[in-house]
Design a protein around this nucleic acid. Structure first.
Length: 367
DNA sequence: AGGGGGTTTCCTGATT
DNA sequence: AAATCAGGAAACCCCC
């Protein structure tokens, strides 16, 4: 049991050591973990030898700077977090940017979002407070780890992270564990001891086994984002071979919840072609899995077909997914004209007239 | 309970 | 030889 937890705990400890040098950490002996346990934790989609921590979507900017898309993403996250029935929300009323959002009173929120209004308002206040408090060092870090396997495994992981300063929150649907640190931080992670802050949600991803040999050196990074709030630091840590793991959650997932009212099928989850499309549209999570061959024509290529299949399998909670199976599903799209055949080119597909949302200029697509 | 959509699984054969 | 493509057939899961 504790074996698998040891590794993730080690990763987490290393990361916390980086972020919060004053935190006590529990070094974990790798020998305590069997390869079988290790395999339970598939946690990366990254083809580089790095542990990358990057702000995700709406969390990286001040709420009042959010775009309409980021507002939607944020609402989607809260909907998901509280398992709210998205069908009760009028999506048309969600179409506002961050500035408009921040101008809403609690009463406004309640009238628009019903019972979820309170949650949204409180969370928004929390985010604003968090941003505002950076200068005085009182801030909150949320680190989100995407794990694999069954929730019971995550429970065990949580058992290994017992520090009163850290609050853990497990999201069983999201296959992730979020840990929140509320303490003042005075360590060197922030370049700017000048009040830099990286509050909000950050996502951890681990290297791909395919690209790693054994005993690699890995870096833990906290990227500097354009808003200048994040900081940079790195710590080397030896890691053993790992298998590729759960993908970071796509923002589109959150949108799907809100789209449930409009699309009867979205309640069942993202379709394969949408999953593929969303990977292509998010270079930050793409990680070299797919690439556009001809962006304007919707032609794309699988760079790491099996990795994409693994991710798809993880999304569908199917550990036996392969590119062969995934490609069969892709071929069914030809008949429905969601995809068009691209003859003579391996691993190359083209979006068809019934695929939407991939074109430049489509709603929500900026580049 | 039954039907439909969207895969998933398995398979054979062809092509690269 | 291995990976990929093509598509038939059946099964599966979920929703209505």
């Amino acid at each position: 049991m504790a074996a698998g937890n040891c590794e993730i705990s080690s990763i987490i400890s290393t990361y916390f050591t980086t972020l919060y040098p004053t935190l006590p950490v529990q070094p974990v002996s790798d020998s305590m973990m069997s390869s079988q346990d290790r395999d339970k934790f598939l946690a990366f989609s990254e083809p580089t030898n790095e542990l990358t921590v990057q702000p995700s979507g709406w969390s990286s900017d001040f709420p009042h700077m959010w775009s309409q898309e980021q507002v939607m993403d944020w609402i989607g996250c809260i909907v998901e977090k509280y398992k709210w029935d998205a069908s009760t929300i009028d999506t048309a009323q969600c179409e506002m940017n961050g500035q408009q959002l921040c101008q809403l009173s609690k009463q406004d929120m309640n009238s628009i979002f019903g019972g979820l209004g309170d949650k949204l308002y409180d969370h928004l206040c929390h985010l604003r407070d968090c941003k505002d408090s950076c200068d005085v060092g009182d801030r909150e870090y949320q680190l989100k780890f995407h794990l694999t396997d069954t929730p019971s495994d995550w429970d065990l992981i949580c058992d290994l992270i017992k520090n009163d300063e850290i609050k853990e929150e497990i999201d069983y649907d999201d296959f992730s564990i979020t840990m929140t640190k509320h303490k003042y931080y005075s360590g060197p992670i922030s370049p700017a001891s000048s009040g830099s802050c990286s509050s909000g949600l950050e996502t951890f991803s681990l290297p791909d086994r395919d690209t790693l040999g054994s005993d690699h050196e890995m870096e833990v990074k906290s990227h500097t984002s354009s808003d200048g709030f994040s900081s940079y630091n790195k710590t080397d840590v030896n890691m053993n071979k790992r298998r590729r793991g759960r993908p970071r959650k796509l923002n589109s997932d959150n949108r799907d919840l809100l789209d449930a009212k409009r699309n009867k099928h979205s309640a069942r989850g993202t379709h394969l072609w949408e999953f593929i499309r969303d990977i292509l549209l998010h270079p930050d999570i793409n990680q070299g899995l797919l690439k556009w061959e001809d962006r304007s024509e919707g032609v794309f290529k699988f760079l790491r077909s099996e990795a994409v299949a693994q991710l798809w399998g993880q999304k569908k909670k199917n550990s036996t997914m392969t590119y062969e199976k995934l490609s069969r599903a892709m071929r069914y799209y030809y008949k429905r004209e969601i995809l068009e055949r691209v003859d003579g080119r391996r691993l190359v597909y083209k979006f068809g007239k019934n695929a939407s949302g991939w074109r430049l200029g489509d709603k929500g697509i900026e580049s």
